[in-house]
Computed example of a mutant assay.
Amino acid sequence: MNNPFVGQWAYRSLLNDPNLNTAVNDLEFGQGVIDIHEDAMQILSGTIGGDGWSLKLQGSREYGSPMRVRFQGVGVVGGEQWIYDYEGYLVAHWPNGVQQIPALVGSVIRTIPHASSNGGISPAGVVASFYAVKL
């Protein structure tokens, strides 16, 4: 069986805000590219990154319905450690889907705090939803 997770994925994450008046642009948590490498049967490895940041991914994958991935991204960005944890699911193929692109959907948590781009602190424990589509 081919590993359906291998390859590059366009990644976006959004804060979980139930207020429908919040503009979509104000929900952005992160974006970048996930690059998943071929590895042993249940292993997930690769990278995730964007402008000015990159994290090494290590984790696992499970076949089933739905197929599942769980991984941690670790790296040094701007001189400090970043750690994020991810859990995601491969969206099932729709028999009547038109030009369906493989997609992962899931959740991400900032595991440890780090400096934010506005000079403050991005706290640990913030949870966001993510989706990634295969490039």
Score class of each variant (00 low, 15 high):
Asn16Gln: 11
Asp17Gly: 00
Pro18Phe: 03
Pro18Val: 14
Asn19Leu: 05
Asn21Cys: 03
Asn21Ile: 01
Asn21Leu: 12
Ala23Ile: 06
Asn25Cys: 13
Asp26Cys: 10
Glu28Thr: 05
Glu28Val: 10
Glu28Lys: 12
Phe29Asn: 15
Gly30Asp: 07
Gly30Tyr: 04
Gln31Leu: 11
Gly32Leu: 08
Val33Ala: 13
Ile34Met: 08
Asp35Gly: 12
Asp35Gln: 14
His37Pro: 04
His37Tyr: 08
Glu38Gln: 15
Glu38Ser: 15
Glu38Lys: 14
Asp39Tyr: 02
Asp39His: 14
Ala40Cys: 08
Met41Gln: 09
Met41Pro: 06
Gln42Tyr: 08
Ile43Asn: 11
Leu44Tyr: 02
Leu44Pro: 08
Ser45Pro: 05
Gly46Asp: 03
Thr47Gln: 02
Thr47Tyr: 00
Ile48Leu: 06
Ile48Met: 07
Gly49His: 03
Gly49Tyr: 00
Gly50Phe: 03
Asp51Tyr: 04
Asp51Thr: 15
Gly52Gln: 11
Trp53Ser: 15
Trp53Gly: 14
Ser54Ala: 07
Ser54Cys: 07
Ser54Met: 11
Leu55Gln: 06
Gln58Val: 06
Gly59Trp: 03
Gly59Asp: 06
Ser60Ala: 01
Arg61Val: 05
Glu62Asp: 04
Tyr63Pro: 07
Tyr63Gln: 14
Gly64Cys: 09
Pro66Leu: 08
Pro66Asp: 04
Pro66His: 01
Pro66Val: 04
Val69Thr: 03
Arg70Ala: 08
Arg70Phe: 04
Arg70Pro: 01
Phe71Thr: 06
Phe71Asp: 07
Gly73Arg: 06
Gly73Glu: 04
Val76Asp: 05
Val77Met: 06
Val77Asp: 07
Val77Trp: 00
Val77Arg: 09
Gly78Trp: 01
Gly79Val: 08
Glu80Cys: 07
Glu80Ile: 10
Glu80Arg: 09
Trp82Val: 14
Ile83Leu: 15
Ile83Gln: 11
Tyr84Thr: 07
Asp85Phe: 07
Asp85Leu: 11
Tyr86Glu: 01
Glu87Ala: 13
Glu87Ser: 14
Gly88Pro: 06
Tyr89Phe: 11
Tyr89Asn: 10
Leu90Ile: 09
Ala92Val: 06
Ala92Gly: 15
His93Gln: 06
His93Ile: 08
Trp94Tyr: 04
Trp94Lys: 15
Asn96Cys: 08
Asn96Gly: 09
Gly97Leu: 05
Gly97Val: 01
Val98Cys: 12
Val98Lys: 15
Gln99Leu: 12
Gln100Tyr: 01
Pro102Trp: 03
Pro102Asn: 12
Pro102Met: 11
Pro102Lys: 10
Ala103Cys: 11
Ala103Asn: 05
Leu104Gln: 14
Val105Asp: 01
Val105Arg: 13
Gly106Phe: 14
Gly106Leu: 09
Ser107Arg: 13
Ile109Gly: 00
Arg110Leu: 10
Arg110Lys: 13
Thr111Glu: 10
Thr111Arg: 13
Pro113Ser: 04
Ser116Arg: 12
Ser116Phe: 02
Ser116Tyr: 02
Ser117Phe: 09
Asn118Cys: 10
Gly119Glu: 02
Gly119Phe: 00
Gly119Arg: 00
Gly120Gln: 06
